[in-house]
Simulated assay, not measured.
Amino acid sequence: MPIHDNDRHAVVLEIGRAYTKCGFVGENEPRVIIPSKLEGTKKREGIYLHEYSTKKELHSNLVKFLHHIFFKYLLVNHRERRIVIVESLLCPTEFREVLANVLYVHFEVPSVLFVPSHLVTLYTLGISTALVIDIGHEETTMIPVCEGTPLIHAWQAQPLGNKAIQERLESLLLLRAKVQGNGGQKIDLVDVMPKLSRAVLEDIVVRTCFVTTLPRARQLVAARTHEDGPSPPVPPPTILYPLSGNNNLTLDGSVREESAEVLFETDNEMVSLASMVLDAILASPIDFRVPLAENLVIIGGGCMLPGLKFRLLAEIKDLQQHPKYSSRIALKALKVHRPPAKSNYTAWLGGAILGATEAIATRSYAREVYMQTNRVPDWNNLADNTKEVDSRAG
């Protein structure tokens, strides 16, 4: 008997690289947002789910992690709940297969519905065409969605996310930062703490860092690269960040300002966040280029940094004048949607909306079918995306 009663709402999970959002369909926000890792001891930071060596290790970690979700945070009987998994289209196939095996075999859930995060994000806005920009922990992925269809051939992905910002922040801190103790004496951070934990770096980014404006960023570059160039602008205020014990980390204003610049610096192939947006639009059908530019949806925890969206739009408008793009694309306006949820769980909300419709019953993959085939359909597998040819067709 299909389970679709009002008192047995399906569970919605979005397992990200850094954080996992979990809750129930029909709700407007997750019940809880937790780190995507197994809790460690005082000496160890913990094991993140995506940092595994073998499939066996991943299977074991997922079993423990999902057990905490079902019995500690959601307090539900997993055998009576359908599951909605909000995943990226670029999710590793191995991770997807192991996750499916854990849900179907170990937890014996009745059915699972895998939904692409970039597509269901549009369910929160009621639109069918947009360029979805997901700035996550390890990477930024951009996929154009045209009339409800993700254009896989136009996808863009680069390792530009919170991890890159944290790595730049750590290098700047070890180079410039001082630690101030009770006596007022300042010591180089590298002599006190040669490596900062991921939790500390993340906390510093969230609490103190921001994205500066494009004109000010150009001033900083000019002052740094030209000896006879203009003097650098006045840096933001220096603040004290409490470390372990009575030590305080002196956070220079220039460090807070420059850490996020890694997202907009071009690499050897002249790729940045701005160029990724224009490349994704150019790779889309010509009739959809203007609608895509006028329907930008920026999601992910990385885009919550103050000033990031404004800076990204400024970078795109400036890059449009480059010869590479000026002769091929003419965008009159760039418009960014404001979804009815915080950026870090907008995709989860889209999955909760879809799961509240009849799709949960018609599109879910039942456990009985999985136990016979031992696999779930995958968009990148031709066996699941090729129409069978009728042998009787002449």
Rank of each mutant, 00 (worst) to 15 (best):
R256N: 02
I360Y: 01
R198V: 04
R363A: 05
T225W: 07
L331Y: 11
L119A: 12
K342D: 11
S231E: 14
G16A: 02
V84A: 11
I165V: 13
R198H: 10
K43M: 03
A10Y: 00
V389D: 03
N101P: 00
I329T: 07
V262D: 09
C209P: 00
V84C: 10
I47Y: 04
P306G: 10
K387S: 06
K332Y: 03
Q166H: 01
V102N: 09
E139F: 05
G307R: 13
T93P: 02
L74V: 03
Y52I: 05
V63A: 02
Q219P: 01
V205H: 04
D191F: 04
G126A: 05
L196A: 01
I152M: 12
F65T: 01
G26V: 04
I69P: 01
H50T: 09
S171R: 13
L308S: 10
L282A: 04
A330Q: 11
N246E: 13
T93L: 14
L319E: 15
D134Q: 09
L201H: 04
S364I: 03
K163Q: 15
T140A: 04
L122P: 09
K72W: 00
S197N: 07
L214D: 00
H322S: 14
L273W: 04
E51Q: 15
V98I: 15
A341F: 02
D378M: 10
Y241L: 08
K163A: 15
M276H: 03
K309S: 10
P30L: 13
I239R: 13
L125V: 01
T121Y: 04
E14C: 00
T266K: 15
N28I: 02
A222N: 11
K335E: 02
F95Q: 10
Q219I: 01
P215S: 05
E258C: 14
N385T: 15
T213P: 02
K195Y: 02
L305A: 08
E45G: 05
L282R: 07
R367D: 09
V290R: 08
I353F: 06
V102L: 11
Y73R: 12
T208W: 09
V112S: 08
R96E: 13
L334C: 02
V297W: 10
V192T: 11
R328K: 15
Q158E: 14
S53G: 10
P237N: 07
E39H: 12
C146E: 13
R96K: 15
V255I: 15
V221A: 12
F70M: 07
R224M: 07
G126M: 05
T362P: 02
G183K: 02
P230T: 05
L305F: 06
S326G: 04
L334N: 03
P150V: 07
K43S: 06
T41E: 07
Y241A: 03
T20C: 09
A361N: 14
T54W: 02
S36F: 06
I143N: 01
